[in-house]
Write a protein that binds this DNA or RNA. Structure first.
Lengths: 337, 337
DNA sequence: CTGTTAGCGCGTTCAC
DNA sequence: GTGAACGCGCTAACAG
């Protein structure tokens, strides 16, 4: 049925065809295969088109070609400073190939993420899932329907780009050990987060190598508030240094510490992850680097390659990290140890 | 024609219909008007559908109904910390009404923005343009085709939601005047930015009221680097305080000042705008508040209202601001004035 | 080089 | 309560 009367309808190919005295096909070709038409014909059609404000209907084109010209990008939290640079880079990379990008915010929930993916599936050619909270099975199921690229999530068989924070975390442990710390705490992030699992494992391994005691304190959601909230738990462990899941959490921890009169780094050392705050905090935060923009670009680029049917097999891109030493780490207080 | 052989095709309504022994229409109704069907029929169909992974094709539905179920959100720079909370809020508001949202990054370029809008037009029901860099005419032209909501851009006749930073800026001027400053400088943002024009005007007006000298220094793009780069120009004016277009610029200025051994706030006062950094900087930044998340939610909500054809006329929502005094402002050095 | 035809997947009148 | 037929705007065969 028609779209109704009151609605403002865009001019269609037919409108252009009529006022140009040609058939729809000709108009169509003027836009998709100009080489097949007379140069003047093309010019005239494009002229008329723009004069009446005609723009090819993306949707109708998609339906008939199966090429949607859209991709989807799903993240757990747009407002988490880790993601905006990634989103931006991915967006611009997609744009270079004239793709439109849907943005989804899963709000750290797998249900929401699953819903979004289903909604996107029928109007995109492929998707990038960042730090997906879905189960491996769901991811595989979705990947069966559309090309899929994962970011910071390691599912064998699914193309993925991973920020290998293990290296940076190892450096952080070594750094703390060298400073003389004997007992550290890892403040974890979301349980379903691959990055969190990787970092936790790296902390455990590094601690063993350097013969450090390590406690784990859980901050479910990576945020300033979470970090601030778990400070009592952190202090209760008796550790002299903390490695946080991310910078946001670390920043919250610093505030919580300050609230309790514990000064950083004199009384307690803090290390973040992701380097999203730059040197903005005071003291400036020692943290593990990241390259979220490169990650976003790489993931989108990989996806576009897949769409170009250039087979990509079981791609597994890895970006490594390093420790950025600033001013929140120092030897433990002399009274301790 | 068909989408080809090699392509992975989603299950269609027809597939569900066949394995359920009913017609396509019935399947369609099961999803859109369950009330018209037998309760058991509906259940069985939905069951089968999800078992074979069928999801209604958004695109085909859009084509036949004219309701795309999509909206677009365009911002100048996703990575500018002002926007992520806005994007997030807008995204979630749209999601509450089951809308998918396209994200566009205009990269501070009107050409890019125009291109994006055209690409979006034929697959969305409406759009939100944030801090648009387009001319009034272009905006009006686009608004003719699709419901449009502006953020921080004031075009009469087009629904818009504005953060009225004038109030906060006035407070900032009063604050500086009270501290004893006689000469201040406004570090401007993008020329085509409504917010920038508004802030500049507010600075001018406030300065006149308080009998302050005011110089203008231009930082084309709002960023850390820009702020840092214009510090020589700022110092050259002989002013004792600066109001920056935004927090990013302010942060850059603080760094540039530190590079030259000018200490804040003892030697020089700095005020930001947007309060995106929280108290993360050191000294913590005195700034003008913003409510970017509310703005995002309000804009999207307004757009959805328009789509629900609840006429909205010439809406002009305003969110006011106030000065957040922290630690980058103090009396000017005694040696001066 | 250009016009004609069929059909992408779905929603929706109509009949049954 | 359910099935058949048409059309949304466009592209891709097929003629000419």
């Amino acid at each position: 049925m028609t779209t109704g009367k009151g609605r403002k309808d865009l001019p269609t190919m037919m409108d252009v065809a009529r006022t140009a005295g040609v058939s729809k096909s000709t108009v169509s070709r003027a836009f998709t295969q100009p080489g097949m038409l007379g140069a003047e014909t093309v010019a005239r059609i494009l002229e008329i088109a723009s004069s009446i404000g005609y723009v090819p209907n993306h949707t109708a084109r998609a339906l008939s070609t199966g090429r949607y010209g859209n991709v989807a990008l799903v993240v757990p939290d747009v407002a988490n400073p880790f993601f905006p640079p990634l989103i931006r880079a991915a967006q611009m990379e997609a744009d270079r190939s004239d793709f439109c990008v849907f943005l989804g915010n899963s709000d750290e929930s797998w249900r929401q993420e699953d819903k979004l993916v289903d909604r996107f599936l029928s109007q995109v050619e492929g998707l990038v899932l960042c730090a997906s909270r879905l189960t491996d099975e769901r991811i595989r199921a979705h990947a069966l329907k559309r090309p899929l690229v994962l970011v910071n999530r390691d599912v064998p068989g699914i193309p993925r780009v991973l920020i290998d924070s293990a290296i940076g975390v190892h450096e952080a442990i070594a750094h703390l050990a060298e400073l003389g710390h004997k007992h550290i705490v890892y403040v974890s992030g979301p349980a379903s987060s691959w990055s969190n699992q990787q970092r936790r494992a790296a902390v455990r391994l590094g601690a063993r190598q350097h013969r450090l005691d390590v406690s784990i304190v859980a901050a479910r959601v990576p945020s300033y508030e979470s970090g601030r909230a778990v400070v009592p738990d952190i202090l209760a462990t008796g550790a002299t240094a903390a490695i946080a899941f991310d910078d946001l959490t670390a920043q919250g921890i610093m505030t919580g510490l300050a609230d309790r009169g514990v000064s950083v780094p004199a009384d307690f050392s803090v290390v973040g992850c992701d380097d999203v705050l730059g040197a903005a905090t005071y003291p400036s935060l020692t943290t593990v680097s990241n390259r979220s923009d490169e990650t976003g670009r790489a993931a989108m680029s990989l996806l576009l390659d897949m769409l170009g049917s250039r087979a990509v097999g079981d791609a597994r891109v890895t970006l490594d990290t390093y420790l950025v030493v600033r001013n929140t780490t120092a030897p433990p207080p002399a009274t301790r140890s």
